[in-house]
Design a protein around this nucleic acid. Sequence first.
DNA 1: ATTAATACTTGCATTATACAAGTAATAGCC
DNA 2: GGCTATTACTTGTATAATGCAAGTATTAAT
Lengths: 137, 137
Amino acid sequence: MVCDEKKRRSKCPVTFALDQLGDKWSLLIVRDLMFHGKRTYGEFLESDEGIATNVLADRLKRLEAEGIIEKTRDPENRRRVLYSLTDKGFDLTPLLMEMVLWSAKYDADTATPKAMLDRMENDRAAFIQEVREGMKI
Amino acid sequence: MVCDEKKRRSKCPVTFALDQLGDKWSLLIVRDLMFHGKRTYGEFLESDEGIATNVLADRLKRLEAEGIIEKTRDPENRRRVLYSLTDKGFDLTPLLMEMVLWSAKYDADTATPKAMLDRMENDRAAFIQEVREGMKI
DNA sequence: ATTAATACTTGCATTATACAAGTAATAGCC
DNA sequence: GGCTATTACTTGTATAATGCAAGTATTAAT
C-alpha cells in the first residue's frame, strides 16, 4: 500500500480520541508510562492485565505513529529500547485522571489510595505537575 | 452459562473504565445521549460514524447491564424504546470533556466551536451543569 | 565462541466487527 | 379487522482483530 492513513469516521473530537486510543490496551500503556515509570517492552508485558506480545508490539507502533509515545535506544544497553511519552501523550493526564476518579466512584474494588484521589480532585494542576516531574528521564 | 460475569483483568481504575467503555463505539453512544439529545436506536444508527446494527444492539445491552444507560418504553408510542443516561453515565461528562479538549488541541480538523471549548476549560462546573440540564427529559 | 537478555515476528485458533437481510411488535389508516 | 409502515432488533456470513505458543534477530556478558 502506498498510503496507510485510515479514513476518519467523522470530525467529532470524541471520535478522534477513540480512533487513536479506543481499545482495551492503548491507554494501559500510557498509564504504565505515566504513573508506573515503565519504559520497556518487557516492563509493559509484566503488567497485571497480561497483554499479548503481538498486540503490545502493534500498539507501540501505532502510538508512536500517532505521536503519543517515542522510541529511543538505551545508550547504556543497546539491546534495550526505551519508550516515553511525548507532550501529546503527557497531555492525556487529565483524561486518565477523570477515568480514575470515575472508576473510584463506581468500582468498590478500585485500588487507588484515597489521598491520591483527593489530590486529583482538589488540586488538579499540582497533580498534573507531579506527573510531569515523575516522568522525567 | 450460569454466570456471565467477566473476570476482571486487574483492580486498576483505568482498567475498570476500559473494560466498560474501551472500544470504538460505547462512548459514541454516551456522547449522543449527552451532547446530541439522541434517545432511540434509530437516532444512534444515524450518527456519522455508521455503527453496525448488531454492534449497536450489543453495546446498548452492555451499557445497560453496566448501569450506564437505562431503557424505557416510550409511553406515547409503545413501539419506541427510549434510552437515557443514569447518574453513572452522566458522571462521564468530565471524561468526555477532557477527550474533547485533548482532541481540539491535537486535531486541526476538530469540529468543536471555540466558544464551547472555552467554556469547558474555564468553567467546568457550569458546563457540566448545562449538560445535566440539557439531558432532562 | 557461547550463552543470555531483550524486543520483537509468525502461525494458527478464537472472538469481534461489518454488512446485508430477515423477524417481531406496535401504530396508523381504510 | 386487515393492510402497510415504523421501530427495534436478530441472524448469517465474510473479514478483521485478538490471544496464545513458538520462533527469530540483535546486542551483551563470559
